[in-house]
Simulated scan of single mutants.
Amino acid sequence: MRPQRIPPQPGQESVWDYPRPAICEDVSQPIKIIFNGEVIADTKNAKRVLETSHPPTYYIPADDIKLEYLIETSRITMCEWKGRCVYSDIKVGDKHVRQAAWRYFEPTPNFVSIKDCYSFYASLMDACYVGDELVQPQAGDFYGGWVTKNIVGPFKGGPGTMGW
């Protein structure tokens, strides 16, 4: 059963107004990611993917990431909207997390703009920022959305939401 949409207040977006299939758009705010005390990504050139019922997922160009901290894995998945992606572990100093980032190496035509950009699970990072705001990770371990104060749900990802 589809949940009740939370009406957005001025300056907010409802994830229930996002399209299906998903779309990609430029981000006007800087994005920063910190892991084990190190800024591993910092950009003013991010993209975000918007899809019904999901908080945005942010994609950062490889040029704005300290790639020496990413270790590509053999895990490859397919998204019906975005294409084929590969996952990376992240290791900074003595801290290591598995499959914490992913990139689309074979995107579909509508998502060519995120080819080889990386997205990160906020739940596995020390901190992820959109502008000056510390994001909250989307619930669950399947989706990688970032929740900010200007986004309202309810959000897919938590227990009982897979059928939405």
Rank of each mutant, 00 (worst) to 15 (best):
Y69I: 10
Y58S: 07
W81L: 08
N45R: 15
I71W: 06
K91R: 15
K44F: 03
I60K: 11
T52D: 02
Y59W: 12
I33Q: 04
A41E: 07
P56R: 02
I33S: 10
P61L: 01
T73G: 07
N36A: 12
I60N: 05
H54G: 04
A46N: 04
S53H: 15
Y58M: 05
S74Y: 15
K91E: 07
E68A: 14
Y69P: 08
I90P: 14
I76E: 08
N36M: 07
M78Q: 15
N45M: 11
L70Y: 05
H54N: 02
T43C: 03
G37R: 06
P56V: 03
M78S: 14
P61M: 00
I65H: 00
L67G: 06
I71G: 00
V92D: 01
A41P: 05
K82P: 02
Y87S: 15
V49Q: 00
E68W: 01
L50W: 02
G93N: 11
V92Y: 01
Y58L: 09
T73V: 11
V49I: 14
D94Q: 12
D64W: 02
L70M: 10
A41Q: 01
I33C: 10
R48I: 07
E51A: 04
I60W: 07
K66F: 05
S88Y: 11
R48H: 04
F35K: 13
W81H: 13
T52Q: 01
K66V: 00
V86P: 06
E80W: 01
D42H: 07
T77I: 12
W81A: 13
Y59I: 10
N45W: 05
A62D: 09
E68I: 01
K91P: 08
S74N: 14
E38F: 05
P61R: 13
A46K: 09
E80Y: 12
I33P: 09
N45H: 15
I60V: 12
L67D: 00
T73I: 06
R48C: 02
E51S: 11
V86N: 14
V49K: 01
P55E: 01
A62P: 05
E68S: 13
V39F: 10
V86C: 13
T73M: 00
D42T: 02
D63N: 14
I60M: 06
Y58N: 02
K47S: 09
R84I: 08
G37T: 03
K32Q: 14
P55N: 00
F35L: 09
I71M: 12
T57S: 10
V39T: 15
P55S: 09
A62S: 14
A41T: 05
K66A: 10
M78K: 14
Y69T: 03
S74A: 13
K91C: 03
E72I: 15
R84G: 08
P55H: 05
I33D: 03
G83A: 08
T52L: 15
G37L: 02
